[in-house]
Design a protein around this nucleic acid. Sequence first.
DNA 1: GACATATTTCAATTTTTCTTGAATTATTGA
DNA 2: TCAATAATTCAAGAAAAATTGAAATATGTC
Lengths: 113, 113
Amino acid sequence: MDDRTAIEALSALAQEHRLRTFRMLVKEGPSGLPAGEIAARIEIAPSALSFHLSHLERAGLLRAWRVKRHVYYAVEVEGMRKLLAFLTEDCCRGRPELCGELTGWAADDARER
Amino acid sequence: MDDRTAIEALSALAQEHRLRTFRMLVKEGPSGLPAGEIAARIEIAPSALSFHLSHLERAGLLRAWRVKRHVYYAVEVEGMRKLLAFLTEDCCRGRPELCGELTGWAADDARER
DNA sequence: GACATATTTCAATTTTTCTTGAATTATTGA
DNA sequence: TCAATAATTCAAGAAAAATTGAAATATGTC
């Protein structure tokens, strides 16, 4: 992932309404939510939400599909995974001890499964 | 970490000059670099750099200390770790398989040590 | 103390991002 | 086809972020 792409993803998450939207969609899982439902829950105008959703989609963090009149949005896991990989490689590679606790729970997690 | 703090850290990294500065300082390690050296390397005005460094420091991603006439900056590992924890918990908790590769290398890493 | 160096602060300007409300597009069901 | 619903697009304005250059602060050296 190059810097430009990383900045697109980071700035997509670095905004109140978009971060809340993203977190909400992580909780919803792959079935996602229609735009109108998201707008109602976070209480912003539909047109404002459209603007934010398109930023998140352009950044590769959401995907969208139409069902009847509704456009559903859900987390694009691969995009988030790439962003996390970019950040962890920058932070930890060469000095993995520096992200100890993070590595810790990931390892715990792997052990549990 | 609350949303407000996460947004501060994400927006700190979501800018060309700040991301380059941060990546440069990750490579430098704990000894860090003086502000003037950073400004020279990324080729921006010292006053512009000051603005960006203070954003990164306020976000908890850098720390600063003075040595003679120079002010050194280095990565604040704990801040980066907290940001990564926030993002991975949001992305993976409840569905850890979704960040498989990330978990993968972290686990490998733990095994190697 | 006087001067040089390193950095930050400040005010002004420019640029970018976000919101608003109206208009438009797309889809469905009567 | 017509009306209703869901969402997006667009243009205008407001708000926030970034850059600039000058001035101020801090430190070290002679």
